[in-house]
C-alpha cells in the first residue's frame, strides 16, 4: 500500500448487484476514496471485523443478510463500527428510511443516486471523521 492509499478514506460498497457495486466503486474511486466491495451483508460484516472502514455504502435487498440486518450487525457490540453508513435502495416506500435509521444508518438514499451527489455525501461524512478524501 502506498502512502497515498494509506491516507485516503476507505469505503466498503455492499451490494449483491455486480453492476451497482462497479458503479459506486468507480464513482468513489474517482472521488479519491479507497474502495472495497462486498456482495452481501455477511461478507460486509466479515470485512468490517478485519478492516477499519471510514464509510459503508449499503444496499437493502440482498441475499443471505439484507441491508438492515447488515447495518444492525455493523452497529452491534461484536463489530461496533462507528463509521457512517449510507443505505441506498430502489425502495422508496413509507417507513423504509425509518427502518434504515433504526438499524443505525446515517443516511437513506433512493436509487439512482447522482454520482456527484454520492461523492459529495461520502466526502462530507468522512470529513466529519477527520479523513477527508
Amino acid at each position: 500500500m502506498t502512502s497515498d492509499t494509506a491516507t485516503r478514506p476507505r469505503v466498503l460498497v455492499v451490494d449483491d448487484a455486480a453492476t451497482v457495486r462497479m458503479y459506486h466503486t468507480s464513482l468513489l474511486a474517482e472521488g479519491g476514496f479507497q474502495v472495497d466491495e462486498a456482495a452481501n451483508g455477511l461478507e460486509a460484516v466479515e470485512a468490517a471485523m478485519t478492516t477499519a472502514y471510514d464509510l459503508f455504502v449499503v444496499d437493502v435487498n440482498m441475499p443471505k443478510m439484507n441491508g438492515y440486518a447488515c447495518v444492525e450487525a455493523l452497529r452491534s457490540a461484536t463489530v461496533g463500527t462507528p463509521a457512517p453508513v449510507v443505505m441506498i435502495s430502489t425502495e422508496d416506500r413509507p417507513g423504509d428510511a425509518d427502518l434504515a435509521y433504526r438499524a443505525g444508518a446515517n443516511l437513506y438514499l433512493v436509487k439512482p443516486v447522482a454520482g456527484d451527489r454520492l461523492v459529495r455525501i461520502a466526502g462530507m461524512l468522512t470529513a466529519q471523521r477527520g479523513v477527508p478524501a
Binding site: 453492476t19 462497479m22 458503479y23 436509487k111 439512482p112 443516486v113 447522482a114 454520482g115
Partner: peptide, 12 residues
C-alpha cells in the same frame, strides 16, 4: 437522464 443505467449498459 439515468447515469447509472448508462454506466450499467456501457459496462455490459
Amino acid at each position: 437522464g439515468d447515469p447509472f443505467l448508462r454506466f450499467t449498459v456501457q459496462t455490459a
